[in-house]
Structures are given as C-alpha cells and as structure tokens.
Write a protein that binds this DNA or RNA. Structure first.
Length: 151
DNA sequence: GCCAACGTTGGC
DNA sequence: GCCAACGTTGGC
C-alpha cells in the first residue's frame, strides 16, 4: 500500500464534503505529472487530504482509493471548468481515482508543523515552489504524519 | 526543437 | 495583492 497527498481548496471541496458524501471522484486534475501519479495509484492506497489556499492550511484528514483509472467525466462536459475540447471519448486524456472517506483529523496538521518536521526531500509538499496537486508520500513520512496527527 | 510570452498555483 | 516557480502555447 502506498500513500499520496491530494490537494483541494476547501472552498471548492473539503474534507467535510467528503465526510458527508462518503466517496467522490477526484476530478479536475489537469496536470500531466499529477495525473501520472494518480494513474499509478492502487485500490487500498491511502491519501492525505490537504487543504490548500485555506485557513488553517494543511492536512485535514485521510481517504482511501476505491477505484483506479476512472475517466474524469468533467473533461467531456462543456459547462465544466475542466472541459477539455481536445479529449475524445475513445481516447480520454484524463484519468483519476475514486476515493472514500476514512477519517477527519481531530485538528488540521498545519503546513507550518509539516515544515518543522520534514525536509523537502522527505516530504514533497514542504518543498519551496511546489505546485503539484497530487504527490507521493513515502512510507516513513506517512507513518510520521499519522503520529503527528494523533498527538 | 527552441524559447518568449503568457497563464496558473498557492504560500505569504 | 504579490510573486516564485513552474507548465503551456504558439511563432519561428
């Protein structure tokens, strides 16, 4: 089982939204590197749910991959912000995952705490200038994040 | 294939 | 609102 970190602006979709809905298709990824990471995810992988452009900023909870290689439906929806006119039904460009809610942390594990606990090499999200919305979290970092969140 | 211009993300 | 750090686009 691998761990990932998924960013979302809570104004658009928050951990509370996922808690209420139970599961969701992680749609709207339009960056190839992020997409490629999602393509390599497996059912059962755990994902840290990160609130970006928010207060507080940081990891708000945990979810789990329940389905992989899900065709992102928004790419074919002309009314969606994520509509991609270059994508074709027979050859969709954007695949993603379905995730289910696992837990909301008792408190947000803030970016500041993550920056204090990890170097950029240990955890991508604390790297300066990092903009990726999907990134891998190695097993040592994942274990330490869960320990910090449980404190 | 290069690269300048432009757009986006996201912390601060 | 600013701006660093990219990614994308399109002319050549």
């Amino acid at each position: 089982m691998n761990h990932w970190l998924l960013k979302s602006e809570p104004e658009a979709y928050s951990i509370d939204d996922l808690a209420r809905e139970g599961e969701t298709i992680w749609d709207g990824i339009r960056n190839y590197q992020a997409r490629n990471y999602l393509k390599s995810a497996a059912v059962g992988d755990r994902c840290f749910f990160y609130h970006s452009s928010a207060d507080p900023l940081g990891i708000a909870g945990l979810c789990e991959v329940t389905e992989t290689m899900v065709v992102d439906p928004t790419q074919f929806d002309p009314s969606s912000d994520y509509f991609d006119p270059k994508s074709r039904d027979a050859e969709p460009r954007w695949h993603t995952v379905r995730v289910k809610f696992v837990e909301k942390f008792a408190r947000v594990l803030t970016l500041h705490e993550l920056q204090a606990a990890f170097t950029g090499d240990e955890l991508m999200v604390v790297r300066k200038g990092n903009r990726l919305s999907v990134m891998p979290v190695n097993e040592d970092a994942a274990r330490r994040i869960l320990e910090l969140a449980a404190r």
